[in-house]
């Protein structure tokens, strides 16, 4: 399983526009995608669920782990990592 560790750079954290952009990209991918917050007791959530991602409450400067598996997952992960790391 591939994964990327990204520190969220946007001022609003992984909420609002960054979350929406992230989810829109994730929804286009055929495979399951999960997002987990580092140093958090919260279990990983689906990268295609904006509500679950908002509930993770990832703030600016916090690190998330994005995971996916299957054909094309490396490219999807690269794109998602870029979105999450964009200020």
């Amino acid at each position: 399983m591939g994964e990327r560790k990204v520190t969220v750079a946007a001022e609003v954290g992984l909420h609002a526009r960054p979350a929406a952009t992230f989810v829109q990209r994730a929804m286009k991918a055929p495979m399951d995608i999960t997002v987990a917050k580092m140093h958090s007791a919260k279990p990983p959530v689906s990268g295609k669920s904006i509500l679950a991602i908002m509930a993770l409450d990832v703030r600016q400067g916090e690190t998330v782990v994005i995971s996916a598996e299957g054909e094309g997952s490396e490219d999807v992960l690269d794109e998602l990592a870029e979105i999450a790391g964009t200020p």
Binding site: A16, R17, A19, A20, V23, Q24, V45, S46, K48, S49, I50, L51, A52
Partner: peptide
Amino acid sequence: EEILKAQALMTEDPGL
């Protein structure tokens, strides 16, 4: 537009 797009995504959230 960005706020409403996010709300639209919430409405069709797969988990929901």
